[in-house]
Design a protein around this nucleic acid. Structure first.
Lengths: 217, 217, 217, 217
DNA sequence: GATGAATGAGAATTCATTCAT
DNA sequence: GATGAATGAATTCTCATTCAT
């Protein structure tokens, strides 16, 4: 499942360089998105570009690795949130974590659904994340805190929606999205439910949700 | 107000080519966003790149023209929707039109707030659009159909949010966002209103909403 | 000798256009030099570029024609000055006219000696101009007003030298070159003559004097 | 003061390439002036254009570096010449060096006074050169070898004038300008001085002397 | 005959990727 | 193993020249 290079005995300095690269890449891509240049990553890591390409034959390989690590953290965080006993609180935490992942990291929003996303094992991690969301949603619905006609797809879409605008406003109005979230939360309550448009959307379509902003080379 | 080149009597073939260019550019930029190459536009239009640069001295000029035309249509559509007598219906139509503009055109979401946006007359057209949104929102609030604590900024953010995910899903699940809209509409109803997070956001921050994904030209 | 297109019966409007083109080209090239674009000439003339290329198959042909006409005027002016009876005054006038031709027209200084210069009949006109200079110089020498060791080549070089700096300073210090001229005039007087460096230079080398500033396409 | 990239330990091959680039650029720009293409420099250096852009982010950076090195040499040479004890000989040497700098390098004549000139430290170096010229001129005047009505501006102009024609004739009649210089030197002698035209020119106008032939970058 | 339009070649620059030390 | 260096492909833009109306 992992694309991380695992030369089992990486020399100590090599391992240190790899760590530097991963840290730098995570920062740069989170800040600037996937169009950031490899040179920028190299500079922040304090290594040469060739060192990066030794570990990651392709820029996309580097991107995939970064994303994968991010997803692992996201999966773990989401799992923990979904395990909260009180269904409403679990739901709320899951939502906050999901939205925050978009807000804090441009790469996440850009990558899911791209060729990159499908070429690596990312969608399996994504499926895992989704399963935790599902659990939280269903518990809340079973508990009567969320209207039953809302599907997992609807739920995920709403999170992405709020995450996207949150990301765009992160520097100028960092908390603006929280008011949107509150409105959406009110809209999820069963007391007000009016019938929803059309038929439920298949979850598999949601991969496209995160198509990169540009054609992927 | 228009940046469109208006050599009042453009030769028939030239006018045809200009139309081809505008159509191709609108399509390409709508699909791929503003980073699409001029060459891509030229190819789809069936002309050489130099032909485009004859009409539009700069790529930004082309982008500005495309955007401006799109905004004019948007402003007109929104005006008409906001003029509908029944406040709830007016609001619904305004929302649909606004979201659709994001869904159908990547360039719109990318451009607002960028230097391009400020260099041309775009922000005036945008202010016009915003004023129609405001009218629709306030009428609906005065009529008791929308909770009073929702501001124009909240409202605009929600539209952008739904628009963003709608755009991403446009090819794979074209109507998926409509269910999100319904949920949000329910969240806007006064009878469910729970207090919103923090203080209202100033509208001017929303410019950043649409900041381009790359370093601003 | 002339490269001017001589369709013997040019329609009245065509002749008018040709005149407009010649006038505009003379202005533009005098101001901006030979790198000025054909489009710039067309615009100032109020005609289309194709109209220019109908008369002048090549930009170089246009340049040659402009230069030729300028040289004709220069030849006539120099002839008249050289005909002045008093040798010192004749010399002075010839010098002023020669220098002024450089100062007022960037094209002149740029063109002589280039492939362009040799491809057309320009060097014959130039020879004519030179012959008038020669007459003025020799008269002044015969009259004892100019040292006898100064050759026609030396004399021409000095004029070009002062002309070049005059041109560069034309806008910022329009008369600065006149002080240089006075110093040179003093240097030409016989009473101060000390022996000159090396052997006299062959006149034919002076064509190179005016090599264009850029490689000629 | 230097714009030369000084990665203190440039790898041997890189240093060799950098030297090749600098040498090629100095040659090409000296021969063809600043409009020469980077590709032409790259070809002569035997490297790709991108290699040049790695060291010099901008063509102007390359130009500035080349010019600066040339100016440093010029300043040193002029300083040395101005330090010669015998005032007449010092003056003569200063003049020869100044003129030779124009003759050998088109870039020098083109650059002074342009934005490039002001953006880099060039004008300070130029001011230094000018101060040496001034010293040589004033010594010669104090010693009675040069007429007192000649200003530093006049002097500089004469050098530029001879330098310009010398440059044009460099290949065809390499020493022709020396005879001009001798005539000018005679014109500078006090014994023959007749009053000069108009008022002295301010030195600052002379910047324009060297304005590039094309629209300033 | 005249014109605006179209184009192809070239220029500066950037960047992922490969190579030599 | 690591690195800085080299490069080729792509991008925006310009301009002399040819073409279609």
């Amino acid at each position: 499942m992992s694309t991380l290079p695992r030369h089992d005995h990486l020399r100590a300095d090599a391992q240190r360089n790899l760590d530097l690269i991963l840290a730098a890449a995570a920062e740069i891509f989170a800040e600037q998105g996937g169009e950031a240049s490899v040179a920028a990553v190299a500079e922040r890591a304090g290594v040469g570009t060739a060192t990066i390409f030794r570990r990651f034959p392709t820029k996309d390989d580097l991107l995939a690795t970064i994303i994968e690590r991010r997803f692992q953290r996201l999966a773990e965080d989401t799992r923990r949130a979904a395990a909260i006993a009180e269904p409403g609180e679990a739901l709320r935490q899951v939502m906050l974590i999901s939205i925050a992942s978009y807000v804090e990291d441009r790469l996440i929003a850009e990558t899911i659904g791209t060729p990159l996303f499908h070429r690596t094992g990312l969608h399996e991690l994504w499926a895992e994340v989704t399963s935790y969301k599902e659990r939280a949603l269903h518990h809340a619905q079973a508990d009567g805190q969320v209207r039953p006609d809302v599907t997992l797809a609807d739920f995920s879409l709403l999170l992405a929606a709020i995450g996207f605008v949150g990301q765009r406003l992160d520097t100028d109005a960092p908390d603006a999205w929280r008011r949107c979230l509150d409105i959406v939360l009110d809209g999820l309550r069963p007391e007000v439910a009016r019938p929803l448009f059309g038929a439920p959307v298949a979850l598999r379509h949601l991969a496209a949700l995160h198509d990169s902003d540009e054609a992927h080379r």
